[in-house]
Write a protein that binds this DNA or RNA. Structure first.
Lengths: 339, 339
DNA sequence: ATGGGGGATTTAGACGATTCAATCGGGGGT
DNA sequence: ACCCCCGATTGAATCGTCTAAATCCCCCAT
């Protein structure tokens, strides 16, 4: 007949006022035991379910947090999401996971939606952290924490030192004797990518006989890695890089597949270092060297900062947390090349 | 100073009534051009953002759909989610992705939250489709579509023929000459798992000299696969299975790693067939045979059914869509064993 | 000049839960 | 017997948006 019953019907059936039902729901302690029982019985009988939209409207703030990531299909981000969700759960908060697919338009759309929902805050790995839409949203008062990306201005952020990550990878490859190295990632406008690129570039610059080539992709997925791999495998041996550093593991996995298809041996003909150290990197055809980021911790910390900001909004000081990456060396780059 | 401005402040600044602003927002056509301009100017100046909670309360129904999956870290489910989201996007609907982690308690918690939000519908891969909580929710009127699981009663569902999947895998292994086969998955109470188990069991029953062993796990992840793999690798050769069929690819990947560590050759000493055919299966140390499910299509179809149900709620006929799985044979099982 | 027509705009409730000031009722103290 | 106090309960106002009915106003036709 009618839709879900409201507090009003519950009250009528229990023979009390709506105020009492609300008290029962929010401060059961102040309701007399027998009243309490009658209300409970009424709720059960009617199958009453609280209307979150109404409470939210009244309260002015919601209990959900938006998490916008670049690619849900990337295990790095699902690990990150798990970390964030674990903490949210403890705070009785919901997480709304949004996938921007590295597309500013989709990202903007999600931000709109989240702001309209008046979420209590947003965790985001932005495509471009100086996006005016994001800035405007922050100025209008939605707490935002940048994830996997250091904040410059007045924002909290949780990130990993990508420049160091790039240096670690570069140093490792140079020490192994490689003199022609490819850096593959993209878009280069993304800070994570450009920092990793800058990191390896800086290390390469220290030795003056290493050639570093850059390859840019639109999206960092397995398919794109395979495509670049095919291109590079087809190069003449004299100019072809002997090592590749890829800005994430999906790219690296695709790249590795292309090497196998082209008949190039890894690591002898081509050494490979990826980024993120997702679980699958270890299980790959040739176990993948990778720069590890603490994904789950990243998510957890970001949510922590957000909760902190929301709770002590009066005088909150923005913090930028930075973690250190680790290079995990596996078979894909474990080969000493003679000069 | 004050929080986000409401329609009321917009109206005041533009010198019109709230009704006009609302009209501007919802039926711009009936607002006079110059009024329209003034309202727009007011909105921009004030940085007005619609309050979804309020519209939702008024309208009685929300524009978000809940998607509850067993494991977001499993690419099968993220692919599925992408399919669902793609269609949702076209319908101007939001998707709230929830991760039950194969835990009925978490699942219940998510269902509570979603119902309180009065979501327009729920897509769920339930732990147990006869869960009374789920049934109650449906009876209270929330449209639910079962995903990756056939509905028995009055519900829409989108699934893949798991029994057939089990038969395909079993048949393939038996034809390759295996006579001791392990089935690994769990919990067995989950219909997907039990159907796959029943499928291979049925095929095995047709030849009376094949021994099928069952191994149950709590959660189907890489870690659990590795653990079972270690256990099986430690068995004496005479009783050890020569082939394993695992109820998903994460298990299979972990299992494969354990074989490598134990020094067993795949497929010679141990043939492996997984399930889902996630992207990483192909890139594994030994490319994995797997029963492919059309994950993205599954998500897309489920969302389609839901939208259909929501739109024509008057007389909606529940439908059960069933897709066929395909066996993809790769190196991990490509070996003929002599009788 | 007057009435009507119709487009534009306004007004007045909902929607459901929460909160707070107001009220009720009963028991204890004098 | 009276009053006071306090715990329990009530009722009304509120949050921001939408809609249906009502009003306004300008212009045209008679």
């Amino acid at each position: 007949m009618m839709g879900t019953p409201s507090i009003k019907e519950v009250a009528r059936r229990a023979g009390v006022s709506v105020g009492t039902v609300s008290n029962f729901l929010n401060r059961p302690g102040i309701v007399a035991p027998d009243t309490r029982q009658r209300v409970q019985e009424s709720i059960d009988a009617l199958g009453f379910v609280r209307n979150e939209a109404a409470r939210h409207l009244r309260a002015g703030k919601s209990r959900t947090v938006g998490l916008v990531v670049l690619d849900v299909a990337n295990p790095f981000f699902t690990d990150l999401a798990e970390g964030a969700e674990a903490l949210a759960y403890e705070h009785d908060t919901l997480v709304m996971l949004c996938n921007s697919k590295t597309d500013p338009v989709r990202e903007g759309h999600h931000l709109d939606q989240l702001e309209q929902q008046r979420v209590m805050g947003i965790l985001i790995t932005p495509f471009d952290s100086s996006d005016p839409q994001l800035t405007a949203l922050v100025e209008r008062g939605t707490p935002v924490v940048l994830v996997d990306r250091a904040a410059d201005r007045g924002l909290c952020s949780v990130s990993v030192d990508d420049h160091l990550g790039g240096r670690l990878a570069g140093n490792h490859l140079i020490e192994a004797g490689h003199r022609r190295i490819a850096f593959i990632g993209g878009p280069f406008t993304m800070q994570q990518v450009s920092d990793r690129k800058a990191g390896i570039t800086a290390i390469v610059a220290e030795s003056n006989d290493v050639d570093l080539q850059y390859y840019e992709v639109d999206v960092m997925g397995v398919v794109e890695g395979r495509a670049i791999g095919e291109r590079i495998a087809a190069m003449p041996v004299r100019s072809r890089p002997t090592a590749a550093f890829l800005a994430n593991d999906l790219l690296a996995l695709g790249f590795l597949q292309a090497m196998a298809v082209a008949g190039l041996r890894v690591p002898r003909d081509m050494a490979i270092v990826g980024y993120d150290d997702i679980d699958f990197a270890r299980a790959a055809a040739v176990p993948l060297s990778s720069v590890r980021q603490p994904a789950e911790l990243l998510g957890r910390s970001a949510m922590e900062l957000l909760q902190e900001e929301v709770q002590s909004s009066d005088r909150h000081r923005h913090r930028q947390v930075i973690f250190q990456p680790d290079l995990i060396v596996r078979e894909s780059s474990d080969f000493k090349r003679r000069r």
